[in-house]
Design a protein around this nucleic acid. Structure first.
Lengths: 196, 196
DNA sequence: TGAATATAGTATGGCACCTAACTAATTTTG
DNA sequence: CAAAATTAGTTAGGTGCCATACTATATTCA
């Protein structure tokens, strides 16, 4: 009987290094266990983040996606095309239709047919929508700030750097083929200098 | 050809410091823009991670949740109760029912009624389920390793530390009330209150 | 013992997001 | 020009996960 204390009654299961090692041994894989641990923790954090984000925005009657639409509109003088919004937010146009539907139903945006191109129906931030953003801003940003409150200023900078590279690495999960990454133990990772 | 799909190429989805500053100015808030930047990038990364994870596991005919169920079963000598699984994975029992339904339909697990307690229906990892894990392991772990491949060994350690604290901070989004600022002390209670 | 309560699992309905197929309007081209 | 191709947005249907409420089986206790 495995007596490893797997009795973490935390809300979410935080994967341990022991677990990673055991898995790798079980399958006889020569992969760095710490790398797997980092990746696994990252996935867990991502799940938790997504959920927390929805809970957060639900407090204001919004969802993560709908909030982002409002902000994008505000950053665009209050008007934009659905396809623009979809592009900028990284969702499909179909998803954008749904987001706009709900926002319109709630009176936060309105649709307006274009005179130039009859296919276009641009989206306009209503006054109520702008007020909503204004009203939620203090709490919203205070919570965001609190989220990283356990990091010092310097640590935030470091984290930003590391997170940036990890975010790039996420594509390793979605790429068609596995990157010609070196089998465990090799240090020849190429730093692709991404200009920023 | 329609390369219109696959829109999650992190194009404009990465928020910039300028954006954060502009937002804070717009609302006249005295909040550290870098903190907001870190938080916002984190949220974006979380969204991307969640999606990438689903894409990854879909390659093996699984979802993130269903994969975790299989692993949890394997870590438990191939058998566990739905409520255990739900607890350990941090999902509701209702969600677990759905996960098991699909896994059972695909022949990766089977349900078995308990003799001791008629309410319990324990879940058993089938041989096919074990084979599935075995078969996907090489690619799965290779991709996970590649995901953090842009970090050096030392950087992974640092990232793990920072990520841990940030993960704790996520609760700032979901907490009932806003807490001013949590002290950086990491006095977490490690007591096991497993006994109810 | 029998009613009240607790527990295990499930059904139902909801939201966010996706892909694929569709409608309507515009542009291209033969 | 009209037919074909492209484009903008929408509809339809599917997945993953959740919350709430329900059924069936123990357990408690008066």
């Amino acid at each position: 009987m495995a007596n490893d204390n797997k009795v973490w009654n935390q809300n979410d299961a935080i994967p341990s290094l022991v677990q990673s090692k055991r898995q790798l041994e079980r399958y006889g894989l020569d992969v760095d266990a710490q790398a797997i641990l980092v990746a696994t923790r990252l996935l867990a954090a991502g799940t938790k983040l997504g959920h927390a984000s929805e809970v957060h925005f639900a407090r204001f009657g919004l969802s993560t996606g709908r909030y982002r639409v409002l902000v994008e509109l505000e950053d665009n003088e209050g008007e934009a095309l659905p396809s623009q919004l979809a592009e900028n937010l990284g969702v499909t146009r179909a998803t954008m239709t749904g987001l706009i539907d709900t926002l319109e139903r709630d009176g936060l945006v309105s649709r307006r047919t274009s005179a130039q191109d009859g296919r276009q129906r641009s989206v306009v931030l209503t006054e109520e929508g702008a007020k909503k953003l204004q009203a939620m801003a203090p709490e919203h940003f205070a919570r965001l700030e609190a989220m990283v409150g356990l990091l010092s200023i310097e640590e935030r900078g470091v984290f930003l750097d590391l997170l940036g590279r990890v975010t790039q690495g996420i594509s390793a999960l979605t790429d068609e083929t596995i990157e010609p990454d070196k089998p465990a133990g090799e240090l020849q990772r190429k730093k692709r200098s991404s200009k920023e």
